[in-house]
Amino acid sequence: MDDKNKKHITSYQTYGIVLVGLLILTFISVGVTWIELGPLTVTVALLVASVKVFIVLTYFMHLKYDSLFIKLMVAGIFILFAVIIVITFLDYWFR
């Protein structure tokens, strides 16, 4: 078998560490709800969720070792979604 395009193998340990990190973030976002932060609660929850999504995309979904083309496509779709949200809310607020 030729080794020139050998696949990157992520170790079990890496996935284990990533999982522990994700679980800690989950408990942080649950813990934060006990503190009264008012309108900030939503911001914190979404911020933690975004960090978690970024970690899942990078490690579990293997984007870290994928081609630049796939990385750019994925980034593009999230930018598109952000733009859709902003445009919708501009419409609601300033109509």
Partner: peptide, 11 residues
């Protein structure tokens, strides 16, 4: 990951 905080946590 997004459904969980939006439905269960943001109270």
């Amino acid at each position: 990951i997004f459904l969980f905080p939006l439905l269960y946590l943001i109270t």
